[in-house]
């Protein structure tokens, strides 16, 4: 049931970032809103259940995106694995870590995109740098809030499930 909720949330985020965000001009280059969800799932959900979910969400993003097919799937999968691996060594609930996790996740995804686009030189261009900075700043400002909100939802859900079971 909770995975269905996360799937719905992922769909909502996809719709928001493909429809509403482009209309808000002052946001400029905004980061991928799915990244906080992927990071959250990787920190809180087992691989065997989390990976299929983010692959489905990535698949939908790939369907809607004009880039190389599978790019989002792979980006999300690697983000999931890397952050999942990291959480075994660091405390995933630290606020500062959350802020930087989203920012780093955004940069990693962008590197994937640029490399896949076939031009490694563009990775070091001014546009790429501006894009990285803009997205990272937005990720740091809003990403942590999204992760905190997701954690709150998760705890509410857990309490509700426990009450239901008892």
């Amino acid at each position: 049931m909770i995975y269905l909720f996360y799937f719905g949330l992922g769909l909502c985020l996809i719709i928001i970032q493909t429809t509403i965000i482009p209309f808000i001009y002052f946001l400029g280059r905004f980061y991928d809103l799915i990244i906080p969800l992927v990071l959250f799932l990787s920190a809180h959900r087992p691989v065997q259940k989390g990976i299929p979910l983010i692959l489905i969400i990535g698949f939908i993003m790939d369907c809607l995106s004009g880039g190389a097919f599978g790019l989002y799937c792979i980006s999300y999968m690697w983000l999931y694995l890397v952050v999942g691996g990291m959480t075994t060594y660091v405390h995933a609930h630290s606020a500062i870590l959350l802020i930087f996790m989203v920012a780093v996740g955004t940069v990693i995804e962008n590197v994937f995109f640029i490399v896949t686009a076939g031009s490694a030189a563009s990775l070091f261009s001014m546009h790429a740098l501006q894009s990285f900075i803009s997205q990272s700043i937005w990720a740091m400002i809003t990403g942590a809030f999204m992760l905190i909100a997701l954690e709150s939802i998760q705890s509410i859900w857990d309490r509700w499930s426990a009450e239901k079971r008892s």
């Binding site: 769909l11 996809i14 719709i15 429809t19 509403i20 209309f23 698949f59 369907c63 809607l64």
Partner: peptide
């Protein structure tokens, strides 16, 4: 299937905006 599922919502949100 994915496009057909998501696009109506996109259209709805976009037209509302």
């Amino acid at each position: 299937l994915a496009i057909n599922c998501v696009s109506p919502f996109q259209e709805l949100v976009s037209s509302s905006i």
